[in-house]
């Protein structure tokens, strides 16, 4: 029997090597810039003439960035067990998402993402965040320009959950994860609001961003905008859902995920050795004869 302490020392499921880490960092910097551009954009005549185009450039850039990062993380090859786990957990997340969509602010997608990121490590958490939202968008026909931005934001949520300190166990662990869950609920809402901000208000209301104004000034305007539109309703609802789900279901779900990780024995090397030359080849006859009707 393995104690929880040794279980936690296990290798992460999708280890991020040095090169993918560099790529992920660069892409995250570029991604954050594409979320926060209204705060920093300069008031040059050329830029204001293209203010309407700037979001479009970013909308085209983000999918490419995301594809490059995901390709880089999976460049070492994802083994079958990790891939099946990724698929099944994405399906659960995608299935959980519409549960709350109708009710104000009850968002259930992050709770399992945080726990899975904690158990399976940062790389798995990042990819799971992306695939969950992608699968959910495909199931509900919700593919659009916002999707890559949602994907990378929820990827960061899973990544952060995997990077939390390893030490705490038991109640301390649940308390830490709950605090993190509340934090990311507000953080995700903040990021997505920042992305929608130029689209929602346009450029000429009192709550719109002013290109070239001091950062704090624009941040102030944005704070009013986000308080008015969503912080009290959606984001608080999401935070409460996260906290309640993590406190009530967290310990049991963590146990289930850890048991699965132990049984799957991720990281155990798989070697394929060729059969000795004298051994009979066990190939069915049907496969060795060419099918009829073809040259």
């Amino acid at each position: 029997m393995t104690s929880p302490a040794t279980a936690r020392r296990r290798l992460p499921v999708l280890p991020i090597g040095a090169r993918p880490a560099v790529v992920l960092t660069l892409a995250s910097v570029a991604g954050l810039a594409m979320f926060f551009w209204p705060l920093f954009v300069a008031p040059t005549p050329e830029a204001t003439a293209h203010t309407a185009d700037a979001p479009l450039v970013f909308v085209l850039t983000m999918p490419v960035l995301l594809a490059v990062v995901l390709a880089e993380i999976s460049s070492g090859g994802i083994d079958a067990k990790a891939l099946a786990m990724l698929g099944v957990l994405s399906a659960i997340n995608a299935g959980l998402r519409p549960l709350g969509a109708g009710t104000a602010g009850i968002e259930t997608v992050f709770f399992l993402l945080v726990l899975a990121g904690r158990v399976f490590g940062p790389g798995f958490g990042f990819v799971l965040g992306c695939t969950s939202l992608f699968a959910s968008a495909l199931l509900t026909a919700g593919v659009g320009p916002w999707l890559p931005f949602q994907m990378i934001a929820s990827g960061w949520v899973g990544l952060g959950a995997g990077l939390l300190p390893k030490r705490p166990t038991g109640r301390a662990e649940i308390a830490m994860l709950t605090a993190y869950g509340i934090l990311v609920a507000y953080g995700f809402g903040f990021l997505m609001n920042m992305w929608f901000w130029p689209f929602t208000t346009g450029t000429d209301t009192q709550l719109s961003f002013v290109a070239g104004a001091p950062v704090l000034d624009n941040l102030h305007r944005f704070a009013v905008f986000t308080l008015v539109t969503s912080t009290w309703g959606w984001d608080t609802g999401r935070a409460v859902t996260n906290a309640v789900a993590l406190v009530t279901l967290g310990p049991a779900v963590l146990a289930v995920l850890r048991r699965a990780a132990r049984r799957a024995a991720f990281g155990a090397p798989v070697t394929i050795t060729p059969a000795p030359p004298g051994a009979p080849r066990e190939v069915p006859r049907a496969l060795t004869t060419p099918p009829r009707g073809r040259p």
């Binding site: 390709a71 999976s74 698929g87 994405s90 399906a91 495909l138």
Partner: peptide, 22 residues
Amino acid sequence: PGALHEIGTSVVVALSVAPQLV
């Protein structure tokens, strides 16, 4: 594209597992 083959496969798994969850 080929570089996203594995990620695409896991999404295919997700799409086909989702109905079984119900």
